[in-house]
Simulated scan of single mutants.
Amino acid sequence: MSQQPEYQDWQQILDLIKHSSETGQHEVLLTMLLTPDEREALVARVNICRELLKGDLSQRQISQLLGVGVATITRGSNELKSKSTQEKQVISDLLDAQER
């Protein structure tokens, strides 16, 4: 009998995170799932997206501001380019909501 892992796709992980947020357990879940380096990389990725969406700085300036390599900024930029205008607006609105 072949065993399968319980979590097999991204949507299941998103559902797990959503459920943990609804029950107030998201901090413990994400802290357990992500290493300190991964959490730091996630903070950098959020800041990269924010700066790219604002559009005020060049990739090189963002790299210097955040202390990450230009290649990291380029990967974030390429990911954003794959998103629709509507998706970019949703992301921008989510990131803006945290500033209020």
Rank of each mutant, 00 (worst) to 15 (best):
V28L: 02
D37V: 00
L29Y: 06
S21W: 10
T35G: 00
Q8N: 15
Q98P: 02
V90M: 00
L53D: 04
L52N: 03
A41R: 14
I48F: 00
R45E: 11
L14F: 14
Y7M: 15
K54N: 09
T85W: 06
Q61P: 03
R75M: 08
H26N: 11
S58P: 00
Q4N: 15
Q64R: 14
E27W: 00
K88C: 02
E87P: 06
K88M: 02
S21E: 13
Q89C: 04
R100L: 07
V68A: 07
L94N: 07
L80V: 11
A44F: 11
V46Y: 07
L80S: 11
C49V: 09
D96R: 05
V68Y: 07
V70Y: 08
V43F: 11
V70F: 10
Q3N: 09
E40A: 10
I62A: 01
E6M: 13
Q4T: 14
Q25C: 06
Q12E: 15
H19E: 15
R50Q: 10
T72S: 12
V70W: 03
S2R: 11
S84N: 02
V46S: 07
E40M: 05
W10C: 10
L16D: 12
Q61H: 08
V90S: 07
E40N: 01
L65F: 05
Q3W: 09
Q11R: 12
T31S: 10
I17Y: 10
C49Y: 04
I91Q: 01
Q8G: 15
S20G: 09
Q61W: 02
T72Q: 06
Q86E: 13
T35P: 05
Q3Y: 09
Q98M: 08
R45M: 09
Q89P: 01
Q59S: 02
L33W: 04
K88Q: 06
E99M: 09
E27T: 07
L16F: 14
R50L: 03
C49P: 06
Y7P: 07
D93L: 03
L65T: 13
S92R: 05
V43N: 11
V68N: 00
L66Q: 13
S63V: 07
Q64K: 14
G24V: 01
T23D: 08
T31Q: 12
T23P: 04
G76H: 05
T74M: 10
L16W: 12
Q3V: 12
N47E: 08
Q86M: 02
E87I: 05
